[in-house]
């Protein structure tokens, strides 16, 4: 059997006395799109941040591509083939669009790979090529989200973690973002996406996990979840 690309075992995240993530288990296979759903404060972002090393784990293990990456420093991840596009986009507003993308490729040495990454991102997002010399802070919300994803793609990752990519965007732009997720997946990128927009997320994802109070309330095939009422129960705290 092929090992999952990422495997999370009994992950525990605490902020002082607050238990944000309470011993969850899940995995994402190579080539999948998996959605992590749940209400505000369910522990979705904490899970992603713990995987990326931005917050320390209290217990449990994270394995990526055959390696134990639990509590690895965040700067090591791009080199292993995983990047996180953080919640709220967090582009470097005082840097130009091109400088933002250049930072995305910070750890890459191979000049050919770097130039291929530029081509890929500018082909996916022609608007970024157009605005390459503009300060990222002056872009619209949708363009900033594209820049955030483009920046995360510059290191040519196997796996992309997306934290609330649709947050605060207009419906039309949200559709583009989800189309983009499908496109990237077709290009071979495995995707773990945290979303509040449940219906859109279940439309593009293969599978989903629903978090409630830091635990996995329910999980399964995205289509089946969309049809069942387990989901509503999880959101309303009934499960």
């Amino acid at each position: 059997m092929v090992q999952p690309l990422i495997q999370v075992r009994s992950l525990d995240v605490r902020y002082g006395a607050v238990q944000a993530v309470d011993g969850i288990n899940f995995e994402v296979e190579q080539g999948e799109i998996v959605a992590l759903l749940g209400a505000n404060g369910a522990g979705k972002s904490s899970t992603l941040n713990a995987i990326a090393g931005l917050v320390p784990t209290f217990g449990g293990e994270v394995h990526f591509d055959g390696q134990n990456i639990t509590n690895l420093r965040p700067e090591m991840l791009p080199g292993l083939g995983m990047t996180l596009s953080p919640e709220g986009r967090r582009v470097f507003g005082t840097l130009s669009v091109a400088e933002n993308l250049q930072m995305g490729a910070f750890g890459m040495k191979d000049a050919q790979e770097i130039s291929a990454a530029w081509d890929r991102v500018y082909t996916l997002f022609p608007i970024l090529a157009e605005r390459r010399d503009q300060f990222a802070g002056t872009l619209s919300g949708g363009q900033q989200q594209m820049l955030a994803v483009g920046r995360a793609l510059m290191s040519n990752p196997k796996m992309l973690l997306l934290d609330e990519p649709s947050l605060g965007l207009a419906p039309k732009i949200i559709e583009q973002i989800f189309e983009l997720i499908t496109t990237l997946n077709e290009q071979g990128v495995t995707i773990l996406v945290v979303e509040q927009n449940v219906s859109m997320a279940l439309e593009v994802a293969n599978r989903a996990y629903v978090l409630a109070n830091g635990q996995i309330a329910t999980s399964g095939d995205a289509k089946e979840l969309a049809a069942s009422n387990n989901l509503q129960n999880a959101y309303l705290g009934g499960a």
Binding site: P74, E75, P86, R90, T94, G107
Partner: peptide, 21 residues
């Protein structure tokens, strides 16, 4: 130099880019 400006603006995200703290 650009990495230092990036880190000055948002240290956590700069680290996510592979910029060593």
């Amino acid at each position: 130099g650009i990495a230092m400006r990036a880190a000055a603006e948002d240290f956590a995200v700069a680290r996510l880019m592979g910029i060593r703290a």
